[in-house]
Design a protein around this nucleic acid. Sequence first.
DNA 1: TGTTTTCGATCTTGA
DNA 2: TCAAGATCGAAAACA
Lengths: 245, 245
Amino acid sequence: MNHPGPTRLIVDDREWHGAMPAALAACAAFAVEIRRLPVGDYCLDDALLFERKTLPDLAASIADGRLFRQSLRLLKATLPAALILEGSARDLASSGMRVEAIRGALVTVSLFMGLPVLRTRDAADTLLTLSYAAQQRRTLANGGLPRHAYRPRGKAALQSHVLQGLPGIGPARAARLIQRFGSVEAATGADLDALSEVAGIGPVIARKVRWAVEEPRGIYVREKGSNSRHSGGPRQHETRTIASH
Amino acid sequence: MNHPGPTRLIVDDREWHGAMPAALAACAAFAVEIRRLPVGDYCLDDALLFERKTLPDLAASIADGRLFRQSLRLLKATLPAALILEGSARDLASSGMRVEAIRGALVTVSLFMGLPVLRTRDAADTLLTLSYAAQQRRTLANGGLPRHAYRPRGKAALQSHVLQGLPGIGPARAARLIQRFGSVEAATGADLDALSEVAGIGPVIARKVRWAVEEPRGIYVREKGSNSRHSGGPRQHETRTIASH
DNA sequence: TGTTTTCGATCTTGA
DNA sequence: TCAAGATCGAAAACA
């Protein structure tokens, strides 16, 4: 649904300092509301989430490992989220952080975690970007433009995380499971044969996964659609040790 | 998909011009191969795909609408892909394109299409970024974030552990889910109403769980009916999926 | 509105 | 010195 009227911008109260209040006052594009947000710094039309960081902020976040956690939290939010990086490389001079570390972190966040990263020059520029984003979202939501395969990026990460709870499943196999089955629901519902078709998953791991996923009352097997043989051997007993990998 | 030894870099033959050959010669990190790629300009370890554009290139792509199609093709490729933007805003001076147009396009590509965008200064910098990406991919094994190394033994504990990967689900609710549904498979397959019947799980958490478990397609837009303020309420608004194709 | 449960941050311990 | 584990507090969601 689209909100009529001006773009609604919710700003986290902790973010209400520095150049931002003045920049917002000078910008008539938003109906601003200041409130504590559970995650992120800015929320547009209740539909887009942004975390703003100056480059020194970013350097600090990298140094103490906060960036990783924060990005993860943004990705887990059900709203599409992005990271806004404000400032130029010059601002880093005093932080003592090497530019290489920044670059590496951005590759991780952007490419591997799938969190979009946008760069802006200053606070006013950030607001401009926000207004672009809001505008485009409305257009897209109206169906005015053809919709393209937008993937809520962080979801894959979360799904992968869930599947990694399964025995024998780490990041790599979890990613392939999602790729092959499309969802956690489908992956946990897959039978032995389907699981074994996934690259990197053989009969042994497939059976472990089924074992973990199935109902414990297991002597009389009632498999859903599968008419394939039921794991040739005896049902694995509960006391069996599951090797972690 | 994992290659031992040096990073394998396939460069599209059409990309073999300008500063790149020299920069590559000066960079010993890659085993380079020049070949025609079906999509993208660079391919790392047969696992990551990159399209490189200088800022003037980008401006031209925007002007004739190519950017959009190219991004879509990259997204549709089976490999994870990213766009590398090379150069600084100064390079745009002669192109006659306004910086705003660039910004708008980047918001679209990065945020709404979900194609990661990385910025670099020059060819050497681009190669550096590529090498970071290759390095990290090997470390992460293409999957994302490793979950706890520790995995419980025993079926009940393991099942609980798997479910605890879901948002809003900790030990207590995980145990109840197992109790109610009997298995991970059944729990992940349960619909909203069934989930809500479980003690300690209400509409909010039920929706979060379904969100995490379902297939990740579509743009999430806030729904019409909820015009009430959500102060203190969850960030997770009721969402509606707009089918994307 | 009160209680339960989860989640994030900090601190500690051990390698 | 850094990483993993446990603990604590606060917020959120359920009943």
